[in-house]
């Protein structure tokens, strides 16, 4: 039987973005663990909704012609935070508070979670 990290990676490889939460309705957990941090409570897998908000962002400056790139911390709506990057916009356009949606890509022959900006919702 594989551990939770291997299970999470295998799920991501099959197109599913999972996170954990306490079976007693406690807080969501990421990265995957064998038990809830702090309490030791049992965990179950749930499908992440995939929506989140940029909590922090840094732009890594590189010497031309190499392009700058962003690294972000994203707060998923479930309440966990993860490192990632926002794609589809210039690095300098990524802002704290920006709403984003997860997407699974393949990079270096492995699945990887990245985020895209959500379109501005009008009248919603």
């Amino acid at each position: 039987m594989s551990g939770p990290e291997a299970h999470w990676r295998a799920s991501l490889d099959s197109g599913r973005f999972l996170i954990q939460r306490s079976v007693n309705g406690g807080e969501a957990v990421f990265p995957p663990r064998i038990a809830a941090p702090g309490s030791g409570e049992a965990l179950e897998w749930v499908e992440a909704c995939g929506l989140g908000t940029v909590y922090s962002v840094t732009i890594i400056g590189r010497r031309p012609p190499e392009p700058d790139y962003n690294v972000v911390l994203v707060d998923l709506d479930e309440g966990v935070r993860m490192m990632s990057r926002v794609e589809g916009v210039e690095p300098g356009a990524v802002r704290i508070g920006m709403r984003v949606a997860a997407r699974i890509i393949r990079e270096d022959d492995k699945p990887l979670l990245v985020f895209d900006p959500l379109e501005t919702q009008h009248g919603g």
Binding site: S56, V57, M82, I96
Partner: peptide
Amino acid sequence: YDAPYRPLFPVSSYALAAARHLH
């Protein structure tokens, strides 16, 4: 979990904290 996004170690971690402090 973090490495694939290529944060510079360790400066980008401090930068993400600093960006929050500014914000």
